[in-house]
Design a protein around this nucleic acid. Sequence first.
DNA 1: AGCGTGTGGTAG
DNA 2: ATCGCTACCACACGCT
Length: 958
Amino acid sequence: MNKNSNSQPKSNEQEIGDSTFEAFNGTFSSTQFSNDNLVEDPSFDDLAKDEFMECDDISPPRKTPFLNDTKSQGTLDASLTELVDQQPDHKETKELKFGDYETYFYHKKLKQQEKDDQYVQWRTKNSNQFPPIFSNCVIYVNGRTDPDITQLHRMIILHGGVFLNYLGAKSNATHVIASNITPRKIIEFKNFKVIKPEWITDSIKEKKILDWTKYTLFSPQYDQKVLESDRELKEKSLPLNRPIDATHPEFLKFFFENSRLHHLSTWKADLREKFQQEALRASKVSQTLRTKPKIIMHIDFDCFFAAVSALSHPDIDFANEPIAVSHGGKGSSDVSSCNYAARKFGVSNGMWVNRALELCPELKILDYDFKLYEEKSKIFYEELTRIEPDCIFPVSVDEALIGLSSIDDEESTLLNICEKLRNKIYVLTGCTVSIGASYNVLLAKLCLRKAKPNGIFFFFQPNNVGNFLKNIPVKQLPGIGRKIEDRLSNHLNKGSKETVTISNLSSVSRDTMVKFFGIKTGTKLFGYCQGLDDTDIDISKNPSKFIRKSISIDVNWGIRFEKQTQVDEFLSRVADHICQRLLRLGFVGARLMLKLARRTKGAPIDPPKYLGMGLCDFLSKSTNLGAPTREVGLIATELKSLYRIIGVAIADLRGVSVTISELQKCDSDATSAVDQKQLQFEAKKPKEKKVQGIEQNVLKGGSVFPHYSPAKETLQKLLQKHLVDLDAFKALPNEFQQEIKLELERRSVEQLFEKSPKKNRNRNCLLQNRSLKKIGKVRPETQNKRIDLISNQRTLNKLTLNIPIENLGDSVIHQKTELSGLTMEGQKTLVNSYWASEKTKTFNKHYNLGIQTFYEFEDWKNLLKDWVRFSFENENEKPIGIHENDLDVFYGFIHKLILNEKIYEVLSLADIITCSLNSSELVDNDTNNESDWRKIRGELLNMLKTNLVQKGACIDTT
DNA sequence: AGCGTGTGGTAG
DNA sequence: ATCGCTACCACACGCT
């Protein structure tokens, strides 16, 4: 870090005058301040120290939720043995093999829901016995434990904790529970509190959360040792010729942990959310109408990553030695940040290390230290809050815009504030910030550029704005990037390499700009040229504008696949990951988009950047999920469908990006049923409202057609008429029975009127008689091929429904692969791994019918009948059975139905299974197959029930 | 005109 | 080796 070795004591006043003159030739009044003498100045030094002492108040030691000693409530009579006794059966999950991720995660999820449901019921019955002692805990259980993971899961959620199924890269887990130590684990969990399970059991016994430090699994000392031996172990066990790419199950975690851009994005989003919420709170408190801030400050660390990383290297003379931050010391790693000494050599951010080293051979490469960046950022924002500005708009971890409405004594006061702030941040973080300030965001940003490094720059002379702007390169304008610059350059300079400045643009009219860049960008750019910018940074004025609209995961590095199964597994993992994120952020989403990067034809197979994406075309496709959801299984299934629709050859896949949008806040947790039920119970209003989506008049009057009251049919007749499975109906909670009855009555009425219900995409699905929409929307002109693909595939699937895969002629297989749009290379793997895979899973095995997600409800009714019949047909003396791929798709569809609250449809399908099983055609020598089908039927009803209970509870709490 | 979808661009 | 993310805006195009 710069210890100001080269600074010379100077008078601040003097400095102001000088640099004003120097920087602008005195043509107009601006101000530049340097704080080279930051700490040398005794007054500053003292001030900073004082502030530092005070700082304890504002930055207390990190909060430790696990030390939160929540008072226990009620009594806990249920002994642990009782818990153990009542623990749901876990065997089936264990029988699953790990080959098929989708099935694996899907069943895992199902089991989870089932269990949670049981826990909820149990808790409801014994409500007083479970003090929510873990209410601040997010707990992940690793490996074999005693008591085992199921029991721990149960204990955790019964006591108000959140149970994590998956330890994400940026996991918010407060605790990791494990019983045994392996070197690998110590590495893996080095950032977590790893505690023995006894902490859970003892805490429950004591009815309060105990000090976790007494239960740590390994001591720090021990860590150190093992860490070293593990490094050797790791080097041996990881073959060097097999680098980690996206086929590796842990790839995502590994990738995100090390991705600077991932960190930047998540930090930014987190900050946004935090300040948005604070603004919401503030706007409730103060009713005063805010005027737009008169002063905008833009404050930003100087080469943040480089400066912070250098803090761990006290031997480095940060001011003079060129340093850069990147992964590794050579090759195609990006320089994410470099100090100004390095910039003198021409090194710049984003440059590859090999190039940077060419320019500056003595460049020192430092590692990332994401944790430290986060810490410094926290201090930074705390200091910003301390000066109590009108508003704070977080731009990034290391950068913020600040609005001040008025300052009594104009610039000198502002200067004072800035200097104090800079000092404090320097003392507290060891890094320098620069500040630009002006009367709008555009100019504040430009001022910041002039202020850097380690300085302050103001501009408050609207009359001189032309002078101020004239030599600014357009690239520096916010929102004007490389592409727009290029287009301007081509237009104005006919491609000459000179940078385009604002004065170059003076000849361009508003209309031309609009014609060139569109109404928004054109107008904005034109305004910028006059120094005009009406960007408002006051979040509290319009908090809803700042709420999150989408959640996405992009992976464009390390994507190299050979087989369809690998792609599918990866998509499942991405689905899992994104669902974890939805969960953590408290959202459900109704729209899913898959974007793929495909190697551009002619681009090298191995791009210059190691495992990089190279030159790519991007293709995207989106689908409505029917209802807002965060179901992993459903999302995984949809992603695989979308992948097949886009049809990128596996060998050419270079990037995958998944976006979920049309978000809705849904604050319940993973074990949502638990929390909701808990809340519901505490609120003591068990059934006031019903499933979301029942229209008001149905709720109140019982019919959508209040003027018409038909002679009511008997319930049984009604059920029969609509093919609803009676057993299933009876198994449902009372209120849902009632609801279905109403729905069926309504349908009877509807038949009389022959009226089709209105479309409503997300809600009121019980009132819709329409079957689910097909995936995506297919346009006749532009996407003819896709229509053909889908309809042909559907036809094909129907045609081949009863033909075992071996009997399919080559031509048919060829046709199928051709339809999927894959290259020859891809075709083989597709045929081998997808259409004719022969994996054994929970249910019997065998022929994958290639059932697709494209079917609609009416199709499914017929398909299901055929499917059941087909599964009983004999092949080598054994029934053909159910293929898990088909089953996955089927379950996916059921999920979709359930999310649409199409209870009736699900019950119909359950009934079709029953009817088919009872029909005499079946060969009755196989009970296995039959019991599989009964299991499936049970699963349908279970899914339905779980979902209804959750929905019911959800309504009650909101 | 306004909507839905796919695509492009930008910032840190 | 290497960790090329991600939220959001804007727009084109075709449809209603």
